[in-house]
Design a protein around this nucleic acid. Sequence first.
DNA 1: ATGTCGATACTTTATCGA
Length: 260
Amino acid sequence: MKIATWNINGVKARIDNVLAWLKEAQPDIACLQEIKSVTEAFPAGAFEDLGYNLAVHGQKGFNGVAILSKLPLDEVVEQLPGDDADEQARFVECVVSTENGALRVCCLYLPNGNPPDTEKYPYKLGWMDRLQARAEALLAAEETFVLAGDYNVIPEPEDCYAPNAWIDDALFKPETRAAYRRLVNLGLTDAVRACSTQAPLYTFWDYQAGAWQKNNGIRIDHLLLSPRAADRLRGAAIDRHVRAWEKPSDHVPVWIDLAA
DNA sequence: ATGTCGATACTTTATCGA
């Protein structure tokens, strides 16, 4: 089965691209970030017509996430536990039934955190602590799960075009990378890195300064797999050709192929 | 070279977030 993640940068602006990509890629499950829409305004019918069940956690103007799934959604959680005062729509997770048992898919839009000398950065690090706790709880329950989304984290220097230019950025600061390493070191598998011998591998190219034309990209969209999910990993890919389409998102879809 | 987008509001241009 194919599970994808894609920051679409606005569902209203991107609906034609998203539908075209869904028809081309045929993912079983697609985790979308930055829908920039309230739940009520999300174009559910267009996705239901393609055979998808929906779990949408929207917000006015910014953020917003959604899961599209061809399998029925047995359970949906719309909040990352750990802070009831957090009103930003950055998380939705679901459980689906597969031939190999229950699979939990978490769709996350981790805070950007810039500029780092503002309250935005501690919010990002706090959010990463909560994600760590969520992963620990699911591992303790021996669940099979995938954490898919826009992490706004450049894991390693080889994941960006000019590491020295990113040193003070919230996406690459040592504290950010350390928090991401703590998460992975729980025993999770970075699917794209596990399936590739290449570097660099980018998933985002800024709209500015001809970043796409110069291939000045960064790798910030990740699928982290629990051990039981990693055992079923058959492949992973980045659909970078989508960045060359008309009116593209600044991110491209990233997907994995799991056995059954 | 902070060079581009998308969404919002007491809109028709400035702002915010990325």
